[in-house]
């Protein structure tokens, strides 16, 4: 096998591209530009941490099934952890969003980073909504019957039936978390490739 034949292989070409765009020292950096010095920078990693806890507690709830938490104090406690980690997730994500807006963090070829972040936010809202609908209590009965009108009005209700509890549970624990995690991973990889946005140049000073 000649060298040029190896060079032309899909595997080789993809590996080289990845190595070029995201070398290990960019993926796991040990230095940071000195302007990265503010508490506002911790809300991205805080959101990521909360997402981790949301997924972990969701996995524990999944082990015993959707109704378990109504009857078990242990299950109810795990549900409480799941709820509060979701509240923290959105809390930190919104502060992160405000912070990145204040810094106009899309500058310097980072528009795709911003956009993956926004889509992650929207996917998270859908994930949380399907979670509320999957609680199998009065809250989910009420929320689903209310939300159906909005979703039906868009035409999406013909496929996405919020009153079909099994369907909503599948969306909540398979499809939407998968989307949210993949989007989050893309978002973080883009941040690592492009680095943190530099400060605006102050012309007056």
């Amino acid at each position: 096998m000649s060298i040029s034949e190896i060079d032309r292989q899909w595997t080789t070409r993809i590996r080289r591209r990845v190595e070029g765009k995201l070398p290990p020292e960019k993926l796991l950096p040990d230095t940071q530009p000195v302007y990265v010095s503010s508490w506002i920078y911790v809300f991205g990693v805080a959101t990521l941490s909360a997402l981790g806890i949301v997924i972990a507690t969701g996995c524990i709830l999944a082990i015993r099934g959707p109704q378990w938490w109504h009857g078990s104090p242990y299950g109810h406690f795990i549900n409480s952890l799941h709820l509060w980690s979701v509240e923290i997730f959105f809390f930190t994500m919104v502060v992160h969003l405000w912070g990145k807006f204040a810094m106009a963090a899309w500058r310097g070829g980072r528009a795709l980073t911003w956009m993956t972040g926004v889509v992650t936010f929207l996917a998270s809202i859908a994930t949380a909504f399907t979670g509320y609908v999957s609680q199998t209590n009065f809250d989910s009965q009420w929320i689903s019957t209310q939300a159906k009108d909005g979703i039906n009005a868009t035409g999406a209700g013909s496929i996405f039936n919020v009153l079909n509890t099994g369907q909503m549970l599948m969306w909540h624990i398979v499809l939407l978390p998968l989307a949210a995690v993949v989007l989050t991973a893309l978002h973080v990889i883009l941040v690592r490739i492009k680095g943190v946005v530099p400060p605006f140049e102050e012309v007056t000073e």
Binding site: S49, H76, W84, N137, F138
Partner: peptide, 20 residues
């Protein structure tokens, strides 16, 4: 830090479960 805050909120406030 997030785990500790989550634990605290869960222990102090719990979560709602209004019966179906």
């Amino acid at each position: 830090v997030i785990l500790v805050i989550t634990m605290l909120l869960a222990v102090v406030f719990g979560s709602p479960d209004e019966k179906q």
